[in-house]
Amino acid sequence: MREALDDTLVAASLLLVAAAATAAALTRDPARQAVVLSLLALALALALLFTVLQAPDVALSQLAVGSAVTPLMILLTVRRVRRRRRRE
């Protein structure tokens, strides 16, 4: 019973990660990609997957880096690039 539950959880989180990653790849607007997908879908799905696989250390890193630092870096880059492009 427990094993079946474990397997279901792992399978569900794997599917979630696959779906979120596909959606992230298909989103063409980098700002949306950064915010919506990194912040909400992909980072959380990965953190969930790592937790389910009993790797809380990795899940914590993923949460800290994936949901805050990476999106912020992407957003700031997009802002800088857009500003330059507007000028040209």
Partner: peptide
């Protein structure tokens, strides 16, 4: 769970 890497990122994020 956690340690220097994870906690360090959280501290830095908090400042921002």
């Amino acid at each position: 769970p956690g340690g220097g890497f994870q906690g360090g990122v959280v501290v830095a994020t908090a400042l921002h």
